[in-house]
């Protein structure tokens, strides 16, 4: 359970990230379908968000002054479910209902099923526009919370993303932060082969955004980049998180074939052994 007002150490956050990865592997194996690589790659960012960056109350998910976290690339939602369970939005046992009939944890996120999700997503490219709307509403209402959006790199091939990037830049939405999961893979292969996105940072800068590029597995860098983004109030901010798809599971890392499939029972066993050993290393590293 996330305790408001408590400052979580980097070690504590790293351990949460590792637990989130274990949950992802277990959930996907149990579900028998779903996406592995993206969620594992974003576990560090979600741990940092839910245990340091976001202002939120797991026991009061509709709290009016909460920071908004919009997930645009809905297929990566297992990492969000796992982070929410770690933070105490619901029990960890419920994670095993992922994608099953009657679950609140649909294959793609549905805000009306699970409190704490800001919207529903799945078809790519729709989240950033909604985050813009939430950021504008906050300004209209004199609220000081921040709206964060998580987008994937591949979904930047959707036209609507660029409509929203143009709009947010023009309207100078200083309370909006777009976190891009830059893992360089999509279903058909490497992004730069399927449809190149580079120079991505320059594109955002040209549209009037504050842009930083960081290692998406460096917790301090993620926290610092979000703090810097909050300090930039005259422009929207874009944080490009360079991540390793499948991070933490050796045979999944960097392999685009793990974008859209779950591990088998044996594969999950191997993955969980690796992650548990990583957990021990984290405790030694921060000791």
């Amino acid at each position: 359970m996330y305790q408001e007002g408590h400052t979580y150490s980097l070690e504590a956050i790293a351990l949460r990230a590792n637990s989130i990865r274990e949950h992802i592997v277990t959930m996907l194996e149990e579900a028998g379908s779903g996406h592995s690589a993206g969620p594992l790659g974003m576990a560090d960012a979600y741990a940092a968000l839910y245990f340091r960056i976001l202002s939120h109350k797991p026991t009061h998910p509709t709290w009016e002054d909460r920071d908004r976290l919009v997930l645009s690339c809905g297929h990566t939602v297992p990492v969000r479910y796992a982070a929410m369970a770690e933070a105490g939005y619901f029990s960890r046992n419920e994670l095993l209902t992922l994608r099953k009939l009657g679950t609140r944890l649909h294959g793609h996120p549905h805000n009306r099923a699970l409190p704490g999700l800001e919207t529903s997503s799945g078809p790519l490219g729709q989240g950033l526009s909604q985050a813009c709307g939430m950021a504008i509403a906050a300004t209209m209402d004199g609220k000081s919370h921040t709206t964060y959006c998580i987008t994937s790199d591949g979904e930047h091939q959707e036209g609507q993303i660029w409509e929203a990037v143009l709009f947010a830049g023009a309207k100078k939405l200083g309370n909006l932060v777009n976190l891009i999961d830059r893992n360089y893979i999509q279903i058909d292969g490497p992004t730069e082969q399927v449809m190149p996105l580079e120079p991505l940072a320059e594109k955002y800068r040209a549209f009037g955004w504050h842009v930083v590029e960081i290692d998406g597995h460096n917790l301090q860098a993620i926290i610092d980049a979000c703090n810097d983004a909050k300090a930039v109030v005259d422009r929207p901010s874009c944080i490009i998180l360079h991540t390793i798809p499948g991070k933490g599971v050796s045979y999944m890392e960097y392999d685009f074939r793990w974008h859209g499939k779950p591990p088998t029972h044996e594969e999950a066993d191997t993955a969980l052994k690796q992650l548990r050993s990583m957990g021990e290393r984290i405790m030694t590293e921060y000791d």
């Binding site: 709307g133 939430m134 409509e163």
Partner: peptide
Amino acid sequence: QNMAGVAAGLALSG
């Protein structure tokens, strides 16, 4: 498309 999305965000904020 952006208009529909921005409106959804506004609506989900009341």
